[in-house]
């Protein structure tokens, strides 16, 4: 048995992927995570530090790291980039004024070498609020097609409060990451 096949077999045993949930403060990262977990989404205060949740989605074990988005703690994001296969970026669709701030932060993240191959899922969150921008508007105003260079990405309308769009979004990123990582299955 060669080394490669041995490694493949190791990977096969445990289909486990690590996903980073980031975005500006107040975008709804923790709420998205709680909604995915089926927990109450009420009264979530701003994340100090981070939350990690592990759960099974199909055959795959997901480790979702939800990191606080206060501008003060954004520099620490890069400590979590190691071995991350997917990035989920959450955008507050009602926050017209901070789109530019979001662009520069996302650009910084995507420029990191450690995340060169990672898939990107953008949640256009808070779609349940009237006046929220549509995913197309967000993709255009964030110039997503320019920021993401040859990486798999998708923008998904969601509402973390109602749960709409959250699961489909995660299904997509899991499927995309798996098709890259576990091609030999």
């Amino acid at each position: 048995m060669g080394l490669l096949s041995f490694l493949r077999k190791l990977k096969l045993k445990e289909k486990e992927i690590r996903i980073l949930l980031i975005g500006l403060d107040g975008a709804g990262k923790t709420t998205t995570l709680k909604q995915l977990k089926g927990e109450s989404t009420e009264g979530i205060a701003s994340t100090k530090g981070f939350n990690i949740e592990t759960f099974q989605l199909g055959e795959v074990k997901l480790n979702v790291w939800d990191i606080g988005g206060q501008s003060y703690i954004r520099p620490y994001w890069r400590n979590y980039f190691e071995e991350t296969e997917g990035i989920v970026w959450v955008v507050d669709s009602t926050d017209h004024f901070r789109i530019q701030e979001g662009i520069s932060e996302l650009e910084k993240v995507l420029k990191t070498e450690k995340l060169a191959g990672a898939s990107l899922l953008v949640f256009a969150n808070k779609q349940d609020i009237r006046g929220a921008m549509t995913p197309e508007e967000i993709a255009n105003s964030m110039k997503l097609t320019e920021i993401v260079q040859n990486r798999h990405w998708k923008i998904q309308a969601s509402s973390a409060i109602t749960g709409e769009g959250v699961l489909p979004g995660f299904r997509w990123i899991v499927q995309d990451v798996c098709s890259r990582l576990f091609t030999f299955n």
Partner: peptide
């Protein structure tokens, strides 16, 4: 936390 919940 509750202020964030009622929405921006």
């Amino acid at each position: 936390g509750d202020h964030r919940h009622i929405g921006t």
